[in-house]
């Protein structure tokens, strides 16, 4: 198609693209290379709740369940908030009004805020608040609240994009028929865009599962099955963040195994939400 000189001039770009593509493979290689025995995976899922990596006991199930439960709870807290916010931004707030721009900017800023600041806020404000009711305050409830505060702005932006992709006639027709906001939202808009909303929620779930700093600061970090809202628990990301500093040999390998499981989990979610991207591409 091109002369050789063209290929030569463009070769730096191809090289860069090759590097970018290879990062994904590199991540896999690097993480797998630190796992001593991949076949020992069943030993990580024994449901006995014992995590003493230095003694060869590594049951990941309590941390895995805690991770998932925190993310799901945070999602349950933030979905109604985000749906209302997204709907308000598009259909109720005055377009280009001061109030709506302010709220939009506020949400945008918070969707990219440092998670460690959320953690600090949770540690010094939310945990003592819960502790007043029942000690110690660290646990599933605090984690879910902090995580919900963190992902709800992100989710609002995703939902807003989902609602915007619905045809405008939908709203016009409903308006002309005198349908109330409530009816329009619950009986027309949400059913219409349910598939996209679920995909957006899955994206937010993936982000919640991968979140480290905010949760490690408020979860309490005791390896426990998440049987109670206020019992201190530890997540997979928390274990990695706390123990990587001193872990050696088998312990280090166990942490990388935990990381590998986390990686597979988040890739699974990424693939499940993939057809949305392809639709986007086709447009």
């Amino acid at each position: 198609m091109f002369r050789l000189s063209e290929w030569f001039k463009l070769s730096p770009l191809f090289l860069a693209a090759a590097i970018t593509v290879s990062v994904l493979t590199l991540i896999f290689i690097m993480i797998l290379s630190e796992i001593q025995d991949l076949a020992s995976l069943p030993a990580f899922i024994t449901f006995n709740g014992l995590w003493f990596p230095t003694e060869g006991l590594f049951d990941l199930t309590p941390m895995l369940l805690s991770t998932l439960l925190i993310a799901v709870c945070a999602l349950v807290f933030s979905i109604p908030i985000s749906i209302v916010q997204a709907y308000w931004l598009i259909f109720i707030a005055k377009k280009n009004g001061v109030w709506s721009i302010l709220v939009k900017r506020f949400i945008e800023v918070f969707s990219g805020f440092p998670s460690v600041v959320f953690g600090l806020w949770g540690l010094t404000e939310i945990v003592p608040l819960i502790a007043k009711w029942t000690s110690p305050g660290f646990g599933l409830l605090a984690s879910a609240v902090v995580l919900a505060a963190m992902i709800s702005p992100y989710l609002t932006l995703l939902f807003e994009a989902n609602f915007l992709s619905a045809p405008t006639q939908l709203k016009l027709v409903s308006n002309s028929l005198g349908i109330t906001h409530q009816k329009f939202l619950f009986q027309i808009l949400i059913p219409y865009s349910i598939k996209r909303l679920v995909q957006s929620s899955a994206l937010a779930l993936g982000r919640g599962i991968g979140e480290t700093m905010a949760i490690v600061m408020v979860a309490g970090n005791v390896v426990n099955f998440p049987t109670d809202f206020i019992k201190p628990i530890r997540t997979i990301t928390g274990a990695i963040a706390l123990e990587m500093g001193y872990a050696v040999d088998g312990h280090r390998s166990a942490l990388f195994m935990a990381g590998f499981i986390l990686l597979v989990l988040s890739l699974l979610i990424a693939f499940l939400t993939q057809d949305k991207m392809e639709q986007h591409d086709a447009n």
Partner: peptide, 15 residues
Amino acid sequence: LDVLSAIPSVIFGLF
């Protein structure tokens, strides 16, 4: 790229 952007930052730390 989509897959890469879905990877948690702690995994990048391990990498």
